[in-house]
């Protein structure tokens, strides 16, 4: 918990009205962990709170990936819909809710790439069929990459803590192993060996199920 808490800077320091632990007043804004608890419980109000607090960051990621417009809006929308319908999969002990939402958003971005790649290939296939030409060969490099991205994001979800946070800090925050050790308080040698084992695990996953071998 304390480890993943470092993944995102303190969220919720701006507009929150401080609440006293355990006795949340009706008028007061709940803190982030209270929002997370009620989100998991299926309290509709918690979905609106989560959206108020974190939709701008999720949408910022979506816009960074696809530019402003319908694709980015779809990613943001799908992130919150999936998070809500799949809320039973959220584990508070694995990290704060906004970090989980960011992870869901990554999946939606990767899914959107994969969807586009399928559309592109079916358009190409239709075009070559129309020309009575042979269809294009095995997956392009791009097709391989988008498929592997979906595969590996799924594998990341299966990695326990602290290994997952360590590799996420390396992949997504571009930190060196020394910076990761400093941020998490985990000894340098432990960080290094976790990184190696995780990269080996991801490599194995690619070797067994990677798109390059399937095509």
């Amino acid at each position: 918990m304390s480890l993943l808490a470092v993944r995102l800077p303190p969220l919720g320091t701006v507009a929150d009205v401080p609440t006293t632990q355990g006795s949340v007043q009706q008028s007061a804004e709940p803190d982030d962990s209270e929002v997370a608890r009620r989100f998991v419980d299926g309290d509709e109000q918690a979905l609106a709170w989560a959206y108020e607090r974190w939709a701008a960051q999720v949408h910022g990621m979506a816009v960074r990936a696809f530019g402003p417009g319908p694709d980015a809006e779809d990613v943001t929308q799908q992130t919150f819909i999936s998070a809500w319908t799949g809320r039973s999969r959220y584990r508070p002990d694995q990290g704060p809710l906004p970090a989980w939402l960011v992870g869901v958003c990554r999946h939606k971005i990767a899914d959107t790439w994969a969807k586009r790649e399928r559309q592109r290939r079916s358009t190409e296939a239709a075009a070559s069929e129309a020309r009575s030409a042979p269809t294009t060969g095995p997956g392009s490099e791009l097709a391989t990459e988008v498929a592997d991205r979906v595969l590996l994001l799924g594998e990341l979800n299966r990695i326990g803590q602290p290994q997952r946070s360590i590799i996420e800090l390396a992949f997504f925050e571009d930190l060196t192993h020394a910076q990761i050790a400093a941020r998490t308080g985990i000894p340098l040698g432990t960080v290094k060996s976790h990184i190696r084992r995780t990269l080996e695990r991801l490599r194995d996953r690619l070797e067994v199920d990677g798109a390059a071998l399937r095509s």
């Binding site: 993944r7 939709a55 949408h59 816009v63 960074r64 971005i109 592997d148 991205r149 992949f171 690619l206």
Partner: peptide, 20 residues
């Protein structure tokens, strides 16, 4: 290979906030 697949800017931690 997994670094190349996952450590891409579009999947990086949020760097900007934008109201949907």
């Amino acid at each position: 290979r997994s670094v190349d697949v996952l450590a891409v800017p579009a999947l990086a931690a949020p760097s900007q906030a934008m109201a949907p």
